[in-house]
Amino acid sequence: MTAEITSRMQASGIVQEGDPVLLEVARAFVFPAEVQEAARVVEALNAAADRVAALHDFAKGMGIAAPQIGIGRALAIVRPPAGEPLTLLSPVVVEGSSRAR
């Protein structure tokens, strides 16, 4: 990402590499006790995704996780280029890849 895009993302509320929240393990939600908190985080993520989408064209779709907006919770949204968006509540990685970024 160029410095200009990084700066614009940061100005839109996206935390950057080195921020402590990105180094922490995101906390899963406890349902049904935290359903209102989960809804609040989903709303915040969608607002952030709208701001970011206004700054950059994501032709292949986009995804954003709560830690990327400074919230240490295990929640993410995925907006594919076509079709319905996905909301991932307390996702768990079950398999990884050794493929380089």
Rank of each mutant, 00 (worst) to 15 (best):
Q16R: 13
F31A: 09
H56M: 10
V41E: 00
D19S: 11
G63M: 11
G70S: 08
E34T: 04
M62R: 15
R27E: 13
I71R: 00
I71H: 01
A66K: 09
S7E: 08
A74S: 11
A33M: 13
L23M: 14
A44E: 02
V41I: 05
N46K: 12
V42M: 10
A53N: 03
F58I: 01
A74F: 04
F31G: 03
P32G: 01
A76Q: 12
L22Y: 06
A49M: 12
L75M: 13
G13Q: 04
A11E: 06
P20L: 04
E24A: 13
G61L: 10
S7A: 11
V30C: 13
A48K: 05
V30P: 08
M9T: 02
R8H: 06
E43M: 05
D57K: 11
A66G: 06
A38I: 02
A66W: 10
A38N: 02
L75R: 00
G70K: 08
L22E: 04
A66F: 11
G70Q: 07
A74V: 00
H56W: 15
V42N: 06
V25I: 12
A38Y: 01
E34F: 08
Q68E: 11
E43A: 08
V15K: 10
A3Y: 14
F29T: 02
A66P: 06
G61I: 03
A76S: 15
E34K: 05
A47L: 13
D50T: 13
R27Y: 12
D19F: 12
A47K: 06
V30R: 12
G63I: 06
G13Y: 05
G13I: 03
E17P: 11
I71M: 04
Q68G: 03
V25P: 10
A33L: 14
L45E: 00
Q68H: 14
T2Q: 08
V25H: 15
M62E: 06
I64C: 07
I14W: 07
G61V: 04
G63C: 11
E24K: 15
R40N: 05
F29Y: 14
R51V: 02
D50S: 12
L23C: 10
I71T: 03
E34H: 03
R51F: 12
G70I: 05
A28H: 15
